Every structure is written in structure tokens, then in C-alpha cells.
Amino acid sequence: MTTRLAALAALALLATPALAQVPPAELGARYVPAPWWMREPIIASIGMVRTELPANRAQFGARFSAVERTSDAALAAAAAKVREIDAVLRSQGADRVRIATTFRTTPLYEQYKDKEGNLQTNDRADKIERYEVQASILLEVRDLAALESAYAAVVAARPQAIDPVRFNLEPDNAAKTFLQVEAVKDATRRARAAAEATGSRMGPVKVIDPTGRACRTDVLAGWPSYGRAEARTDVEYAAPPPPPPPAPQSIMVTGRRVAGEPAVQVSLQPPFEALEDDACVVFALLP
């Protein structure tokens, strides 16, 4: 009897997960079974909101180059070119300007002309004439109030090249929460308008899906469809005022300006970027 009970218990344990893991539909089936909240009249509404915020991050890079007969001398010369500008920019604080510096060493080989007059490179280890070291700095400006002064300081350091400034938006948690709440409100407004248009009444909430995926289950088509609609509602986000800027600092690199040359002045305005969010709210539909 004990052995029989143990066997039955084992069969029950094996059967339970099998029943719990039954897929919602079989591959190749014509239709997907409707979700539980569609067993009675419902109205599923997708809230889609959009707002525009100014970019709050900026990145750009600059490169300095030095050529010497030995790799050590070339590295020292390149490091000297970026040492002062690196110290000046780091004085702004890592919370405002973050800097990454890298070096790349390239051997320069002896060159000659062949019988046809074509220039050839003798790329053998014993034919290295000089070394070129390129020092690259990458700036991530996290406080755009420091962008123009940081850019002017890099220009004044006379780098070999400066990359274009790239802007991007990193929304804070307050902006994300605001958009999520507005998406739920938008879904409610759309559902109410649809119910009133049909002479029905909205019942209690059955599902709230902050991802919006629940409303994109295309039951009639057979499988979920996650295409994004474009009819979004514009909302205005009142961002909190930024903290007062720190006291102005002179960050001009010394010893690099020609006598009589005016100080570098630039104007860099961040663009506005779109921020979007969706939410799905399912209501019961009453006659």
C-alpha cells in the first residue's frame, strides 16, 4: 500500500507542472484562445503619449598627435599636449564633465620609390624611422551649462581634430513616471470616449499593463501583434528648475593663444528630443 501511494504521489507531481505549462495556443492553430479578461464584454484601450524635452547630455572628442624617433618620446610628447587640458577639464568635476583619455602608437616605416616611381613602404621592424602617438580625449558633458566653456577650452588647446558635438536625452525618473501616469490617463480618456460613442458605460478596471502589450494581442489574426500605432497624445512635462550654475570659472588653456588673438566663444544649443510611452488599460463594458 505504501509503495502504491508513493507511486500515485509521484504521478501527481509529474502531472501538475504539465497541466500548469499548457501553452495558450498550439503552433499552426488558426486562432489564439482569447485571454481571460475577454470572456465578457470589455473595452481595451492603449494610451500613447509623447512629449519633447531638451537634450541633457553631450559628447565630443578631440585628438592630439606627436611624432618622435622613439615610441617613448612620442608618447611623452602626446601626453604633454593633453595633460594641461585634461587637468583643466577635470577641475569642472566628474558630475559635470567626464573625460576618457586613450593613446594609440603607430610606427612610421621607411619609404622609397620603385623602378616605376611608385612610393612603397618598407614595413619591416628594422626599417621604422619614427613613431606617431595619437592621444584621444572623449568628453561626456552631463551638465550642459558647462558645455560651451569645455568646448572652448578644447579649441584653445589646438588639437589636431575635434569631432562634432552629439546630443542625447537621458530622462530622469520623474520624467519617466510622469509619462507613465499620462499614458494611463490617455488610455482612460480614449476608453471613455469610445464607450460614450457606442452608448455603453465603462465598468471597473480589469487589467492595467504599463508595457501596453496586453492590448496588442490580435485574437482574430491568430498571434500577438506588437505593431506601434502613431496616433499619440502630446503632453507637456514641466521639468523642475535646474540648480543654480556654479560660479563662473576661467578654463582657458594657458600658453596656447597667439598674442592679440581673441578668446574662443561658441554657442551650442541642445536640440529637443521626443520621449514616448504606452500603457494598456482594460475596462469592463456595461450596457
Results as ranks from 00 to 15, higher is better:
residue 3 T to M: 14
residue 4 R to D: 12
residue 4 R to K: 06
residue 5 L to Y: 14
residue 5 L to A: 14
residue 9 A to D: 02
residue 9 A to G: 13
residue 13 L to S: 03
residue 15 A to F: 08
residue 16 T to Y: 05
residue 16 T to R: 08
residue 20 A to I: 08
residue 20 A to C: 13
residue 21 Q to T: 06
residue 29 A to C: 09
residue 32 V to I: 14
residue 32 V to H: 05
residue 35 P to C: 14
residue 35 P to K: 09
residue 37 W to R: 03
residue 41 P to R: 07
residue 45 S to D: 03
residue 46 I to G: 00
residue 47 G to L: 04
residue 49 V to C: 04
residue 50 R to I: 07
residue 51 T to V: 02
residue 51 T to D: 01
residue 52 E to I: 01
residue 54 P to A: 09
residue 54 P to R: 09
residue 55 A to I: 12
residue 58 A to T: 07
residue 59 Q to N: 13
residue 61 G to P: 01
residue 61 G to F: 05
residue 62 A to T: 04
residue 65 S to D: 10
residue 66 A to G: 01
residue 66 A to W: 04
residue 66 A to K: 02
residue 68 E to S: 10
residue 74 A to G: 08
residue 74 A to Q: 00
residue 76 A to H: 13
residue 77 A to P: 06
residue 79 A to S: 13
residue 79 A to Q: 12
residue 80 A to W: 14
residue 93 G to L: 04
residue 94 A to N: 10
residue 96 R to A: 12
residue 102 T to N: 06
residue 103 F to M: 02
residue 105 T to E: 11
residue 105 T to C: 03
residue 107 P to C: 11
residue 110 E to T: 07
residue 111 Q to C: 03
residue 115 K to S: 10
residue 118 N to F: 12
residue 118 N to Y: 09
residue 119 L to R: 12
residue 121 T to K: 10
residue 123 D to C: 07
residue 124 R to P: 05
residue 125 A to C: 03
residue 128 I to H: 05
residue 129 E to K: 14
residue 129 E to W: 02
residue 129 E to H: 06
residue 131 Y to H: 06
residue 135 A to Q: 01
residue 137 I to C: 01
residue 137 I to Q: 01
residue 137 I to D: 00
residue 140 E to V: 08
residue 141 V to P: 09
residue 142 R to N: 12
residue 143 D to S: 13
residue 145 A to I: 09
residue 145 A to N: 15
residue 146 A to G: 07
residue 146 A to T: 09
residue 147 L to T: 08
residue 150 A to K: 03
residue 150 A to D: 04
residue 151 Y to L: 08
residue 151 Y to N: 01
residue 152 A to I: 05
residue 153 A to K: 00
residue 154 V to Q: 00
residue 154 V to I: 12
residue 156 A to E: 11
residue 161 A to W: 04
residue 161 A to N: 13
residue 168 N to M: 15
residue 170 E to C: 01
residue 170 E to V: 15
residue 172 D to Y: 10
residue 172 D to P: 01
residue 173 N to S: 14
residue 176 K to E: 07
residue 177 T to V: 12
residue 179 L to W: 01
residue 180 Q to M: 06
residue 182 E to L: 09
residue 186 D to S: 11
residue 187 A to L: 05
residue 189 R to V: 15
residue 195 A to I: 05
residue 195 A to P: 02
residue 196 E to D: 10
residue 196 E to I: 05
residue 196 E to N: 12
residue 199 G to D: 10
residue 199 G to Q: 14
residue 203 G to N: 11
residue 205 V to M: 15
residue 209 D to M: 04
residue 213 R to G: 00
residue 213 R to E: 10
residue 216 R to T: 03
residue 217 T to K: 04
residue 219 V to P: 03
residue 220 L to Q: 15
residue 222 G to P: 00
residue 222 G to L: 10
residue 223 W to H: 03
residue 223 W to M: 08
residue 223 W to I: 05
residue 224 P to I: 00
residue 224 P to V: 01
residue 237 Y to F: 15
residue 241 P to Q: 13
residue 247 A to N: 08
residue 249 Q to N: 05
residue 251 I to P: 00
residue 253 V to G: 03
residue 253 V to R: 02
residue 254 T to Q: 13
residue 254 T to N: 09
residue 255 G to Q: 08
residue 257 R to K: 07
residue 258 V to G: 15
residue 261 E to R: 11
residue 263 A to W: 02
residue 265 Q to K: 15
residue 265 Q to P: 01
residue 268 L to D: 04
residue 270 P to E: 02
residue 271 P to C: 13
residue 274 A to G: 11
residue 274 A to I: 15
residue 275 L to S: 05
residue 276 E to I: 15
residue 277 D to E: 14
residue 285 L to D: 10
residue 286 L to N: 12
residue 287 P to S: 12
